[in-house]
Amino acid sequence: MIDNPVIFYSASVFIILFALLCLFAKNVVYSLLSSIVVFFFGALFFYVLGSEYNAIIQAAIYGFAVPVLIGLSIMFGGGKTNVKSKRTLSLFLPLCAGIFILAFIYLIMMSLVIMPDTFNPSDVLQVNSFDTIRTFARALFIEYVWAFELVSLLLTIVIAGLGMLGVHRHRGLKRSRGGEK
């Protein structure tokens, strides 16, 4: 674990700013680019917290694969992405203020409930890369093997289902074109 306030605070400011920009940018492409930055800063947080494996997975899937999917959806959407909403603008400032007030109340309550000295990472945590990977392997293939297999099955079903939907739709389009001729 990296206990550096400069990294933490700068990453926090950037992740919050880009998350807000992601929601309230007018162009959805800017939202997509901001979301990439948010996901990469999320991976940075995982790395700082001592979980390199999760950071790599987060950066690979949410930093590269998911933006490609969303970008393809924007391309198929034809670029008509501006949705004007007066309600959004009128509620933006009070809701943001409410979020920050709630978050500060939560922080104060948590710091009152749990004493900071209870969880001192330098006393309880001895993490290095080899131990983390070994723990992951043990958990995935022994303790959580059923969950692992279920997730694998779910991924397979989704891929097969999307393929089937695409094939059916392609056949339907062919039939309708044949009927028109």
Partner: peptide, 21 residues
């Protein structure tokens, strides 16, 4: 046991599937 790491790993898989669908 690092259960939180494992759960977050599953979340990444499920989240990607949910987004694709």
């Amino acid at each position: 046991r690092f259960d939180g790491y494992i759960i977050s790993l599953f979340y990444v898989g499920i989240g990607a599937v949910e987004l694709a669908v």
